[in-house]
Amino acid sequence: MNSRAAIVTGASRGIGRAIARKLAADGLAVVVGYAGNTDEAETTVKAINSVGGSAVTARADVADEAAVAAMFDLAEQNYGGVDVVVHSAGIVELAPVAELDLAALDRVLRTNLRGTFVVNQQAVRRLRDGGAIVNLSTSVIGLAFPGYGAYAASKGGVEALSLILARELRGRDITVNAVAPGPTATDMFLRGKDEQTIARLAAQPPLERLGTPDDIAETVAFLASPAGRWVNGQVLRANGGII
Rank of each mutant, 00 (worst) to 15 (best):
V82I: 12
P146K: 08
G157Q: 13
A41I: 06
A199L: 12
L109G: 01
V158A: 12
L136F: 09
L102N: 10
G157S: 11
I15E: 02
A41W: 03
A180D: 02
A95P: 14
M71S: 11
Q204L: 14
I243G: 13
L163P: 00
E40S: 15
A199I: 06
D39A: 15
A24K: 06
F72Y: 14
L105D: 00
H87L: 03
G36N: 05
Q121I: 00
R126G: 03
L100Q: 14
V30G: 10
E40D: 11
T212H: 10
I48C: 03
A144V: 11
D194L: 11
E208C: 07
P205A: 10
P226G: 11
V176F: 00
V134L: 11
S88V: 12
F145P: 05
A66H: 12
A98V: 13
A166Y: 00
V220E: 02
A185Y: 08
F222M: 13
G142D: 11
T197F: 13
V124N: 00
T116A: 15
R126H: 04
A153G: 06
T111R: 03
V140D: 13
E159C: 05
L163F: 10
L74I: 15
A69I: 04
A185T: 00
K155I: 06
D73E: 13
G182T: 04
D106K: 10
W230V: 11
I242G: 06
Q122P: 02
A35K: 11
L236G: 00
A75R: 05
E99W: 09
E40R: 14
P206R: 06
V119W: 03
T212D: 04
G241H: 01
P181V: 05
I198Y: 05
A66L: 13
N49T: 15
V108N: 02
D83V: 06
V158T: 11
P226H: 08
V30N: 06
A103I: 09
A103P: 00
N232D: 12
A70M: 07
G80D: 11
L109M: 15
E159Q: 13
T184R: 04
A75F: 06
G16V: 07
L100F: 07
I174T: 05
T175K: 04
M71T: 15
Y34C: 01
S154E: 09
R114T: 14
R237T: 09
L28W: 01
F189W: 14
A63M: 04
A238K: 07
V140Y: 10
N37S: 14
L143A: 12
S3D: 14
P96C: 08
V235K: 03
L100E: 11
D73L: 07
V56G: 01
Y151N: 03
R229A: 15
S12G: 13
E76Q: 12
R191A: 15
A60Y: 09
N177Q: 05
Q234I: 04
E93C: 05
D39C: 00
L201W: 07
V56E: 13
A152H: 04
S225D: 10
S50L: 02
V85W: 04
S225F: 08
N112I: 05
G241Q: 05
T186S: 05
V231Y: 11
A60M: 12
V32D: 02
D26H: 07
N112H: 09
I133C: 02
E42D: 13
F222C: 03
P226A: 10
R59G: 04
A69S: 15
A66I: 11
A132F: 09
E159L: 05
R21I: 15
